[in-house]
Design a binder for these strands. Structure first.
Lengths: 160, 160
DNA sequence: CATGTTTGCTTCGCCGATCTAAGTATCATG
DNA sequence: CATGATACTTAGATCGGCGAAGCAAACATG
């Protein structure tokens, strides 16, 4: 088995891990991965507008509306009209929502962070260099920043 | 920006690349990424049974049936009863299907392979080691083999 | 060989995510 | 105040996905 095969397989495993995590989330939280992702975004600040969410997740507002509908229905978030601009709706996370996030299985990024921290210095350096390299290889064009991932996302934080 | 942030961002970009590629495929081929993936699987040998596809793609047979329906409708594949076992249906790729695959934009894995080949020996070695490391870090448990990716998958071939 | 079980696929009815287009309410401004 | 932009929701569609039920072919075995 040559290097390229090995690399592709590893890459596949990496991608696959996100997929599996989706299923874990579904089971553990009772909501779907996409809904969970919305919840996470809201949880970051405790509240968010529909617009914000639709931009962060790169989906239409219509989609956000229906996702929020579901989260409201299960009591994880509430809608409240913004006082400053009454066209806006602030979506607040509830205690149940908070709890759901807290109880969710060890997110992918936390898993990564924990193990990364445990590595030797040189190894960390190697990984960083390699990942950046691979990212550059796969990016079709220069991509700005924040993506939509599936589950749990790989967030730019490490409050693990 | 510390190493962990850098890594996570790179990882995010890698995952994001598959997402963007999905959109490219849709535009270029007129079929959806999932349908394209089915087509790819069939194309590997020129034909496949529904069962095979459902296993390879980790979806139910019901789902495969509906995906094949769509590919048949646009003339990219045909259904033919197997001679040896008449319960089985061999799905054959048509010229149109072949053409679609040929005309599809540079798949992710090809992009990767091309660039990987161009690397220095030591760099290839480093990438392989790193990717395997990361894969191990993300895998919750030991994962067997072939996953469902989104677009184009990252196949274990490099007939680029 | 006849009957019962397994296997391979399709049909049906359902749900979730997503979109676009069209509507409603609110704001901002000339 | 009238007009136009902005923030959301509603309506209606498509797609991917599932499980259950059904059917036909193959197999197994007394």
């Amino acid at each position: 088995m040559d290097r390229i095969d090995t690399s592709l397989i590893a890459l596949r495993r990496i991608l696959r891990a996100t997929d599996l995590f989706d299923r874990e989330i579904k089971q553990a939280t009772g909501i779907t991965p996409v809904q969970f992702r919305v919840l996470q975004v809201i949880a970051e600040k405790g509240l968010a507008t529909a617009k914000e969410i639709s931009i962060r997740m790169r989906v239409s507002q219509a989609t956000v509306t229906s996702l929020i509908d579901k989260l409201v229905r299960v009591g994880m978030v509430t809608r409240e009209k913004s006082a400053s601009d009454r066209r806006q709706i602030n979506i607040h996370i509830t205690d149940i929502g908070q709890q759901t996030i807290k109880d969710a299985p060890d997110p992918l990024q936390q898993r990564f962070v924990r193990k990364f921290d445990a590595l030797e210095d040189w190894e960390q350096a190697m990984l960083v260099a390699s990942l950046e390299r691979v990212a550059a290889m796969l990016d079709a064009d220069e991509i700005d920043a924040s993506p939509v991932l599936h589950a749990g996302d790989i967030k730019h934080t490490h409050d693990a």
